[in-house]
Simulated assay, not measured.
Amino acid sequence: MKKYLLTLAVLLSLSMAASAQDAELLDPTPPGPFIKFSEMSHDFGDIEQGDRVEYTFEFTNTGDAPVVISNVLTTCGCTASSWPREPIVPGASSKIEVTFNSTGKIGHQNKVITIMSNATNNPERVKIVTNILPKADS
């Protein structure tokens, strides 16, 4: 019985080690800078036409070299952004602030923000989503 339990324990530990190695092979972080966002999308829910809403996307450089963001592109003039201009060293976190102006918009909106950088996962994209309701009569 002890041999059986010992064999089972050895096989289980080998299986767990192999699973961890498989996970690293499936999702490795390549060498160089790498941007990892805490959230890839934010839903504002329902807002009223004319509202301005803001959201901050937080990210970490999980790579082994500094990340330098060269540009942040938005899909229309209704979306603006601000981003760090200084390099983000490995292990450090920073943020990209996004403002959406719903003036002249109605219904479901899905705005993609494209982050251009020297990261190995360049370009990276995040998005904001909202549903714009007609302005209530005052």
Rank of each mutant, 00 (worst) to 15 (best):
D43N: 15
P28C: 04
T56Q: 14
S38M: 00
I132M: 12
D137I: 11
S13A: 15
Q21D: 10
E48R: 13
G91D: 10
T62F: 01
I128E: 07
N110C: 05
D137F: 07
G45S: 06
F34V: 04
H108R: 11
F44V: 09
R85F: 00
L14Q: 08
V129E: 14
C76L: 08
G77L: 09
V129T: 13
R125S: 13
S94H: 10
T75S: 14
D43I: 06
D51T: 08
T103N: 14
A17H: 05
G63T: 03
D27M: 06
E48S: 15
S70C: 05
E48Q: 15
V72Q: 11
A80Q: 04
L133D: 04
V10W: 03
T29N: 12
M1Q: 14
H42F: 13
E39N: 14
S94E: 15
S81P: 02
K135C: 01
E86L: 10
N122R: 09
D64A: 03
P87L: 02
G50F: 04
G107F: 05
K127R: 12
D64T: 04
M116F: 00
A20S: 12
T99Q: 14
T62Y: 02
R125P: 03
G45V: 03
S19N: 10
W83Y: 15
P31F: 00
V67K: 01
S15N: 08
D46C: 00
T99R: 14
F34W: 12
A23H: 02
F37W: 07
G104H: 06
G104I: 07
K135R: 15
N71W: 06
D51M: 12
K135Y: 01
F59S: 02
T79H: 01
K95C: 08
K95N: 11
Q109H: 02
A17L: 14
E86I: 02
A80L: 03
I113S: 12
T103R: 15
N101M: 06
I35E: 09
I47H: 03
N121P: 04
G63S: 06
D64P: 02
F37T: 05
T56S: 15
C76I: 00
P84I: 00
K135Q: 13
T60I: 00
N121Q: 10
W83D: 14
Q49E: 15
